[in-house]
């Protein structure tokens, strides 16, 4: 009985240090998990970037032509109207006024 009460005493004394240990352990686990998650996400992002750059890489010449050629049709499917003398004069006047306004 005397031995048992000693054990109980020991347990009750060591209880606060046990709680603190658990606290530390859970913080450590959290930081560890966070680091692992970070590393995993980082690695996945790098792999995904590499795969995407290989798989989705466009042929530069083809991509360039896809940019340029549709414009030809759109540009030409228009009516072009010759400017009247009045329009031309007004345009020159506007351009000069704009220039003066911008640069004082």
């Amino acid at each position: 009985m005397g031995e048992e009460s000693k054990k109980e005493l020991t347990l009750s004394v060591s209880a606060p240090s046990g709680t603190s240990k658990e606290d530390h352990a859970s913080r450590r686990t959290f930081i560890k998990n966070l680091a692992i998650a970070g590393a995993v996400i980082g690695t996945n992002a790098l792999v995904a970037k590499k795969v995407a750059s290989v798989v989705l890489e466009k042929d530069p010449q083809r991509a360039y032509l896809e940019d340029v050629l549709p414009g030809d049709r759109v540009m030409m499917a228009r009516e072009y109207v010759v400017m009247t003398d009045e329009e031309k004069k007004r345009l020159v006047k506007t351009l000069i006024e704009n220039y003066k306004k911008r640069l004082g």
């Binding site: 072009y80 109207v81 010759v82 000069i96």
Partner: peptide
């Protein structure tokens, strides 16, 4: 130079039949 009345571009604007592309958009 469009600011110079003696420049080739200004002379063309004064004397020739001129048109521009997509004037409808007011891009000048």
């Amino acid at each position: 130079n469009l600011l110079d009345p003696e420049s080739e571009v200004r002379r063309i604007l004064e004397r020739k039949r001129v048109f521009r592309l997509r004037v409808d958009l007011n891009t000048f």
